[in-house]
Amino acid sequence: MVPLSWYMLLSIIVFAIGVFGFLARRNVIIMFMSIELMLNAVNINLIALSHYLQDMRGQILAFFVIAVAAAEAAIGLAIIIALFRNKATAHVDEIKEMQG
C-alpha cells in the first residue's frame, strides 16, 4: 500500500513542473502541455484523497477536470493553429495583441 503522502508528493512535483514549464518556456505548445500537467497533478491529488477518504465525489470531480481539460485542449489547439496561420510563429513573446 502506497501511503497517501507519496501521491501528494507526486502531485506537487508534477504541479511544480507544470508551473515552471508555463512560466519559463516560450513555445505556446509547450505552455499548453504544462497547463495539462497542472490539471493532471490536481487529478492525482483528487483521486488519491478520494480513495483515502472513501468519498466518490473526488473521483467525480476528477472526471469533470478531465472533461474540461479535453474541451480546453480542443479549443486551445484550435486557437493555436489559427494563431500560427496568422503569425507564422508559436513563440509567445511575439504574440502581444492584448497589450493595453
Partner: peptide
C-alpha cells in the same frame, strides 16, 4: 493602469502564481 496589461501570457501567469 493599462500599462500593467503587457499582452504577454507569461506575465499574466506570473501574476497569477
Amino acid at each position: 493602469l493599462r500599462k500593467v496589461q503587457t499582452g504577454l501570457a507569461q506575465h499574466y501567469g506570473i501574476f497569477m502564481a
